[in-house]
Amino acid sequence: MDTPGTPTTRSYPAPGLWARRQQCLQTWDCSAPTTLPSGSDKFKRSVSNPCSGHSLNLVGVHVVGSCSEASNFFAIVQSVYNFFSASTHRWAILKRCAQEKSLTLKSFSTTRWSARADAVSVLNQCLSQIIKALKEIEENISENPIARQEAKGIRNQLESLEFTFMLSLWDFLLSRFNAVNLRLQNVKISIDEVVNQYEALIKIVDETRDQFDYYEIRALNMSEIKEYRSETQRPGKRKLKADETRDGELELSARDKFRVDAFNVILDELLSELNSRCASYTEINEKFAGGSFSNRVTSESGPTPKGPETESWVASGWNDGDCEVRLNGG
């Protein structure tokens, strides 16, 4: 304990040392292992070891951004939460309609996919109760007219065949992603176990790609509407140029169009993102495989260190063809 009136002396790392340490601690989304950004010869053979949990979160972010049907689905999920959470009166109606179930709607984060898993799971389990609450608000003439119209619009979206299909599909996928993500957050997980987890997830997604009929049957059982949206709308036709004809044009049915443009796109993008990340971790694992060293290299997880007192790992011993990584001083 410092004596009153005595100046307190504290030591801090030299600026150059601290900058190098921050380079070691920095992580990136990995599509391929990269060399740490330093001009020093010591770091030329160093390989970044990106956070596997954060990288898995980014898989979902990229997939949703590549498919309009997926982004529209999550927008509807969020709109349900926004509608009921905006009013205690509406929330009370929802609770009353779900007396037999413990129903608590969840919002979701744009990057934390465990929150999306919770939000989709609740909606999948209590869809009929949510629709019942929306109908009650919609048909009550004493309700605000704007709220009634909003309830009707959300209800129509929830009852569509496309939404119930996406609900079943994403509930399954997100539950598996969340389970893997929780394992990846273990601070003692090794690189070879990270590779195993990614490979298991790739296998699940690959097998899901052949199960369109299964999810369609589930969606038909849940949905009030038994046809795809484009089957109930007048199809648009592309305007032909002067030297064009419609001979040889392929017109997909509404079912096939949804399978090709939504279902296949989502799963193909998932496989592409997962494979690229798995290949990166596999390359790191193979590079340092052999002996006891491969079990000592772990994927950085948890919050990024904020200062010298929270250092999680230090890279040292940058010798030719070798690299030693110490975890928590171990």
Score class of each variant (00 low, 15 high):
K203N: 14
Q129C: 13
F165E: 02
N295A: 06
V61R: 02
N275L: 14
A254S: 15
F108E: 00
R326D: 14
D192Q: 15
V297I: 15
A147N: 04
S175K: 03
C323T: 12
S312A: 11
L127R: 14
G153T: 05
R21K: 10
R21H: 12
A219L: 04
N72I: 12
V120T: 07
W113C: 04
L220R: 14
D268Q: 07
L174N: 06
L158P: 05
N82H: 00
N49W: 02
A70Y: 11
R326W: 01
V180R: 01
N72E: 15
R20Q: 09
A86R: 15
V122S: 11
V180E: 05
M222D: 01
S292I: 00
K203D: 15
E100T: 09
I266C: 10
A75L: 10
R183K: 14
K106Y: 05
A70F: 12
K101F: 12
Y198R: 07
T27L: 08
L25W: 08
R176C: 07
A115K: 01
E162G: 08
L127C: 10
T8I: 13
S272C: 13
L25G: 03
A133Q: 09
T111R: 03
G307H: 09
C126I: 07
N328Q: 15
I146C: 04
K106F: 05
E150A: 09
W18A: 14
S223M: 07
A19Y: 10
I202F: 00
I141W: 03
K188R: 08
P308G: 04
L134N: 00
D243F: 13
G329H: 13
P13A: 02
S121R: 02
R209F: 06
G248Q: 13
L105M: 09
P15Q: 09
G153M: 00
L17G: 03
G307M: 00
L94V: 09
E193F: 01
H89L: 12
K226G: 12
D243C: 11
L123M: 12
R255D: 03
S52A: 11
Q129N: 15
Q22T: 04
G5N: 12
K306Q: 10
A98E: 08
V59I: 14
T208M: 11
S294E: 13
S66I: 06
K42S: 07
S301V: 12
S190C: 14
I93C: 11
K152Q: 12
Y198N: 10
A133Y: 00
C24Q: 05
